[in-house]
Design a protein around this nucleic acid. Structure first.
Lengths: 134, 134, 134, 134
DNA sequence: GTGGTCTAGACCACG
DNA sequence: GTGGTCTAGACCACC
């Protein structure tokens, strides 16, 4: 499970971890019952303080995505896949909505938005080979 | 000049004001030399703390968009239009980039993004009559 | 709003704070829209680290009991009363259930439990004057 | 000797085992001199880590409830019955105290507590036939 | 002034 | 080994 922290996109680190785990579950990169990397492990991998990872994992427990297995770590719950699947596009959608709404309300036309979108999408595709993913 | 503050999109209020003024200038809704509403006025209109408006106007002065006219308020500078025009799409683009990047890195395909985008765009268009704008 | 932290009952401090706030809302000691004491304030009152209070308040936000008013603090949400009311007895009930279940499964009779309960209840009542409450 | 581990009541597993053994001794379900199930045995029965059972047995030895019989396992000591009898209600009492105290301090009235108690007690009785016990 | 994020590190409980 | 709690303190964003 690869994760790149971006300290410049405004999203707090713990939130990025939360979202990434959800995506990983939705994509079956993390299977039901599988253990998520330990707090300390993840923390060193990301070069981040363990508390930050712990915070993310705590939020994921509160949402019912992870469940603690006493003394052995945190595992993906059976419900997690369903929840994450339904969240998957929703998480993107809400951010996208916010951007488009601002643009629209400020007089950017649909055509301008379309070309902006296509531009950015093709740039993304060319930057990172041919397929999306971690 | 209409402005709807959205307290739930992550963007700080003062930043929303800044961006909105810039858009208004770019669209000629605010003409060169025209006065922007007073801090106190704007604050009550938006049901927002006057300090917040002051902060936005301060930033706009720092960027050379507004300039103080002694005793009467703040006016749009002659340079403002040029600057705001060039910022116009850039402000949207950078937010859009951030969203698309996260999606792409987490395995959302270009097709999914395209349909998501179209969905949201049409919803926006139908929600707010036929034309973009304030 | 009075709160006595008990470091010896197993419940973590932040959890005690969470529960106490919920009770206070249910009892209308905290009204809708009212601000909860600031993190720093509460922390010094309880002689506790501010982060601990912050953690409690964060949990309360996640449950929709509190909502942030930018720059001014945290306020009780309109929904809070309903939620807290319904939680009120539930929080006690679940702890009580757990105790009774253990006792019952281990052969303590209903009569023994009844006398135990009455004993403790009268002790409580005599210890703290005639009425419950903070 | 039947034992149901409840991973959601806050009590650590080893503590539940300790308490259960004590109750069993007090009830004469475990007689003086009788052997307690082996660590390995108990662990598989409860689907629990053997270390957890070992920990419980260690605590029970420290309290003088169990004593090792060379090469054959752990047996109930002669003193055990006395000790466990006197602990029997005390273990329940202290948990009950804690619950009632929280409720009382947060304004739950004696009447509410009484009805809550009766409710839970009758539910327990109806759930598990007519008599308490394992 | 407010809350939020992050770091650092101690200590505990559990398995 | 695992996660959880708590403390301490720095720094930031916002109002």
């Amino acid at each position: 499970m690869h994760l790149a922290i971006d300290t410049h996109n405004g999203l707090p680190i713990y939130e990025q971890i939360v979202r990434h785990v959800k995506f990983a579950v939705a994509n079956q990169l993390l299977q039901i019952g599988e253990h998520v990397p330990s707090v300390r492990d993840m923390a060193t991998r990301l070069a981040v303080n363990p508390n930050t990872v712990a915070r993310a994992y705590r939020d994921l427990q509160a949402e019912g995505i992870l469940t603690p297995i006493r003394g052995t770590g945190l595992a993906v719950t059976p419900d997690a896949v369903t929840r994450c699947r339904s969240d998957r596009l929703g998480m993107i959608r809400s951010r996208l909505q916010s951007v488009l709404k601002e643009a629209w309300q400020n007089g950017i036309s649909a055509d301008e938005l379309r070309s902006l979108f296509n531009e950015e999408l093709t740039r993304l595709a060319s930057d990172t080979a041919l397929t999306p993913g971690p």
